[in-house]
Design a protein around this nucleic acid. Sequence first.
DNA 1: TTTT
DNA 2: TTTT
Lengths: 171, 171, 171, 171
Amino acid sequence: MAGSVNKVILVGNVGADPEIRRTQDGRPIANLRIATSETWRDRNSGERREKTEWHNVVVFNEGLCKVVEQYVKKGAKLYVEGQLQTRKWQDQQGQDRYSTEVVLQGFNSTLTMLDGRGDGGGASSGFGGGRGSSGGGNDYGDDYGAPSSSSSSNRGGGGNFSRDLDDDIPF
Amino acid sequence: MAGSVNKVILVGNVGADPEIRRTQDGRPIANLRIATSETWRDRNSGERREKTEWHNVVVFNEGLCKVVEQYVKKGAKLYVEGQLQTRKWQDQQGQDRYSTEVVLQGFNSTLTMLDGRGDGGGASSGFGGGRGSSGGGNDYGDDYGAPSSSSSSNRGGGGNFSRDLDDDIPF
Amino acid sequence: MAGSVNKVILVGNVGADPEIRRTQDGRPIANLRIATSETWRDRNSGERREKTEWHNVVVFNEGLCKVVEQYVKKGAKLYVEGQLQTRKWQDQQGQDRYSTEVVLQGFNSTLTMLDGRGDGGGASSGFGGGRGSSGGGNDYGDDYGAPSSSSSSNRGGGGNFSRDLDDDIPF
Amino acid sequence: MAGSVNKVILVGNVGADPEIRRTQDGRPIANLRIATSETWRDRNSGERREKTEWHNVVVFNEGLCKVVEQYVKKGAKLYVEGQLQTRKWQDQQGQDRYSTEVVLQGFNSTLTMLDGRGDGGGASSGFGGGRGSSGGGNDYGDDYGAPSSSSSSNRGGGGNFSRDLDDDIPF
DNA sequence: TTTT
DNA sequence: TTTT
């Protein structure tokens, strides 16, 4: 259908170290669990309530997979932009089952790290501070081309990957 | 978790007339099926491919439900903005099942009609069918400026629907 | 800065036929004026109010420019996704002036037509043609990938353009 | 116009401590400067390039203003969601000038802190400090859980601020 | 299973 | 200058 948009934007934390699998022809696929949550106060009881939502994020793009592989660890805060996709599969009883995932593949997919670390580690100073200079303990790259990356397709092809905006990240 | 975002943006067509149910205490819940699709050309075969994705959209907001009830019909093109939510339920065998839906509820939920009616006035059966006809200059009621509406909660309240926007700030 | 996002999403109508200019080295640049508006009822007077916002949209991407050139006409309803950019220039008095535009360039830029026509009128073969009419059970036309297109960079380079998802649109 | 969307999403860092003004009738307005930036490698020279974009963000919503006042400091990383708005004014020569701002007001506006601190540094007076503990004098404390907040209008009303989210729908 |  |  001409004129359609299918976009998911999440900012949340990664619940576990990512899993990276490979297809038969060698392309990587990364799976992430990302938590988002909301807090509010119940109107009646006045109690604080929190609800956490877990999202399955699947990264098909080769470049983004490498970013995931190198930088994304349990606890990392990420911005991801992808699409909703529902996959049909059969369970052991042969019944149809459906899983809905946030897929990063093709254009308009993005993954950006929002904290300067994967699993925590030390330093991390103020704003401009870590940036560019990045002195100590920073773990993604000394200059950071930045593990912020847009996905440039490769859908349907074994095709090669090319960065749109920066291409010296050690993918 | 402070600092999280869970947002889905869809532009697509409604696959069937919406279903409106009511909770025990009378609040409406609307269910929509929205299709988005993509077309591309296979890199190897050169063939055209198309993939349609169907989304379950659930509207909890009372105001938006009224918009849906009155204006949204099969074939309507909508912009919706909501959140991802996965609901757990048990099938007849007592097995856990999960359904992921796009929920319009609370703040930051929006539903906007992108054509001026659902299947509008006259006949207009199928998908997208009626577009263009738009019949008789109806401007969608006098309660809403338009069937473009943000969800101003009301969840949990029997409350009435009120516009968020106002106009008297001297800026 | 690693970890930044700059995104604008507009759904609105084009106020005038687009202008297409060319850079010295021949690359096209399209300028669009897009109107968005909101309607609401004044809380005090109860009167209906409307506010229209005009956006300057600049398309640097070659592929998207061709889509604009061929399909976008005054009155068209578009979905655009781009970035905010403020440009500094000097007026005739030599004073600094700033203009903020929505730029479609590089990754994560998108332009999608939301109605099947440019300026309405009869003819309009190409794109809008099939849509809406869609005669026999065909849902989304059989031969256009659709002038819905993502922008695959080209920033900073004379570089070549490659479509991510579909590549047979006669750009 | 029914069917329009005007949305800006930024993730970036605050360039200076926010300014809070008040309207004649006492409502607060917060002004923020937010930087986003991109890095890429020039295709020709191979040099690394970086471009920082500065955005003027204006917060009209009373609840969000309080969040800004208490927690947002220079250097903070924020997620903001608002609308584009161009304001006309006259310079000292009486010439028309235009300023485009990202306005947080009314529905669908959001401001979320993405780091647990304002200006960094050890102590962390600002945001992260108060959060969770929230002890004294916190004022969205009683209604809100966290300095992640959606704008529930109140524009035009001196009105009190209320959470949209609630939790008792049996779905 | 994250985060606060 | 669009659109409803």
